[in-house]
Amino acid sequence: MAAPRTIAALDGRPAAQHARPAPRRRRSSQWTALAFLAPLVVYLLLFYAYPLYRNIELSLHDYTPRAFVRGDAEFTGPENYLDVLSDDTFVRALRNTALFTLVSIAAQYALGLALAVFFHRGFRLSVVLRAMFLVPWLLPLIVSASTWSWMLNSDNGIVNAALEAFGVGQINWLTSPDTSLIAVTIANIWLGIPFNLVILYAGLQNIPAELYEAAGLDGANAWQRFRRITFPLLRPVSAITLLLGLIYTLKVVDIIWIMTRGGPADASTTLAIWSYREAFGTGQPDFSPAAAVGNLLIVIAFAAGLVHVHLRREEGRP
């Protein structure tokens, strides 16, 4: 993910309210409720539903830049999708998306969990130090991405200079097809650690301390306490953290685009990057295939999202 954002979500509480008996002046209170809600509904229709509709429309027509302005694009049906699916770039972008996403969220989660456990029992300065870990997540992505670009620069980067001290030869992190995906994944993992730390730390706070005390009395060592208490009880929070990570990492554009532009030779092109490049990245905007790729991405994200909603529902009810 680009620094994953937060997702506020259903907490199940209002469900009980919906079930309460209707108030007296039902109709007029309904109108009031809708009046307060109306701006949001109009907004959702105008600025979510309509762009999405336009996007589907783009993907079903052959929009050249000229037709884009004049609005007379030819209807082509599923042709854009067939083109995209049979394109060589598709397989590579799908593979890169899978690698980038899975490696990122696995590493972010593992490191975030290790740090959360480390900070769980307070110690001197622990609050301040934990707060410092939020920094990468708060920085604008362009700031992080350009800093990483310069650190990973082949000739003048600090990373290569440090590796050289250990006898490692020059690595062309961003300009070699063998390493560019690794380079952007490293930067992305760095960005995602704070989010994982904060969420998992909050999850740890909800585990009753008595459980650890009891386990301590029974002579369980630190590793056993982690295996038998922390990890199992953190499972619901872990599932949500990983899923949010998945949803956000799928749509990452900024960090990859700024560091490598998906290159060299598509080596770090993900589906989101491919879509962005077709539409905005070249002098020749090609909106129709870009929209088709974007819609495929939405389908993948929604599939993950449905799992997320399902998990929340299970967790949300006592």
Partner: peptide
């Protein structure tokens, strides 16, 4: 205020957060 369709709005807001920004950007551009 318990508006009718409130649950649907909740769900739509969750879904809205999953739409990739690049897709939104194309829609807005158009």
């Amino acid at each position: 205020l318990r508006p009718r369709g409130g649950r649907t709005i909740d769900f739509l807001l969750l879904v809205a957060q999953m739409i990739p920004a690049v897709v939104m950007a194309m829609g807005f551009y158009a």
